[in-house]
Design a protein around this nucleic acid. Sequence first.
DNA 1: TCGAAAAGATGACAATTATCATATAATATT
DNA 2: AATATTATATGATAATTGTCATCTTTTCGA
Lengths: 233, 233
Amino acid sequence: MEEAEQSRCENCIIRQFNSLRAMSKQELKKVSDSKITRKVKKGEAIFEEGDKLDGVFCVREGISKLSKLSANGKDQIVKLASKGEVMGQRSVIAEEYTNLSAVAVSDMEVCFIPKDSIIHTLSRNPDFAIEVLRHMAHDLKEADDVIVNMSQKTVKQRIAEAFLYLKKNYGEDRDGFLNLTLSREDIANVVGTATESAIRIISEFKKRGMIKTSGKKIGVLNEKLLQDLIEGF
Amino acid sequence: MEEAEQSRCENCIIRQFNSLRAMSKQELKKVSDSKITRKVKKGEAIFEEGDKLDGVFCVREGISKLSKLSANGKDQIVKLASKGEVMGQRSVIAEEYTNLSAVAVSDMEVCFIPKDSIIHTLSRNPDFAIEVLRHMAHDLKEADDVIVNMSQKTVKQRIAEAFLYLKKNYGEDRDGFLNLTLSREDIANVVGTATESAIRIISEFKKRGMIKTSGKKIGVLNEKLLQDLIEGF
DNA sequence: TCGAAAAGATGACAATTATCATATAATATT
DNA sequence: AATATTATATGATAATTGTCATCTTTTCGA
């Protein structure tokens, strides 16, 4: 019985997008043999804050939110991870309990890769280590940007940014709605505000003709207006 | 003529605190031969946002603020770097222009290490790469924490946290004042608020007996009160 | 050491955002 | 399909934070 083509890491196109591409054929084979592919339904958790991760998760399909619970019970979404992104590497590398939870915001398919093969390759294949470093460096820069946005921009500006970000990164359907639909609460948690505030601002944007809505779906109508708002006009 | 002991990386104790400790004797020698030690006076810039860095800076003495200018002209301090920390590695590794400025908040001594020897060692010595990775992973986690704090805590709580952080990390002098003295403006830029707001809250903390001040110096008087405030009482 | 400039302090006020209450709409469950 | 549950929406209000003006104190350079 032959295994399906795409279930082998060597053939997985997702690999093109992440650090795994720096692995040798042999290393990939090892990873492939030990990986476990898993389907995750929308709303389901992949791992939770404080878990000890024995490996990393490579997103093959769908989108996950990486969030952190604050003392007052609110969730702050720190990052959205989609096709090709690897989750949990930070905690595997630092050998610490993870500081984030990963929950699917759409139906997903993820590959679990045990940390042994990652760690092993890290210490043998400098190219791989550098690739991982590059990715982490990129994430760090993005995190810095988020910090600045949080402290310097208004909630309105952050929500406008979020919509443009979602449009740019996940695109829109034929009807002009964002492909990635987040609940109002998730939107609030991305920009770090109260759900009611987010809802209010969404209503306002709609009245102003900047966006349209249909149920929880949101579509960008006037990118320029949003952009102007972000820049402070 | 013999070079002073401590001006050779191999003997520099600072190295114990950072990724350089994973370098071999030979690699360190090379770094040492190409490094440039430099004194930086308080207020002086080491590098500025948008600079192309040809190497990293290892802090040997003093403290630097790493900050990012926002569109509205405010500076957000993203991190304070002190003895043993390496600045600029993110941008050297990602081969991008730096996203942060580094300015001395006290008189400093830094070693500039050209990127060639760093990159070279990265691709030869996996232990070094892993060390650097660990540090970056740690920074990333801290950045996540900052994001959550920014969005979930009040300005008051963030200022209280900042004082406890400064006390814990830089200690206090015999008179009970924080060793690291930041201007009110810098404090505001650390927690992401207006200078006037920071000043007002500092006055309030003083009235409440939580801290004492003397000029721009600040001393923690009642750690428990500050801690309670942070936790929402 | 004098005077200018910068930093710190505080009041008055406006803008932003959170919270609580409640209503309506959408979704899920039996 | 009926009902329970959850998500969305909106008003009223309070709390937080920012802005502008002004004054005092400190710092620094000539």
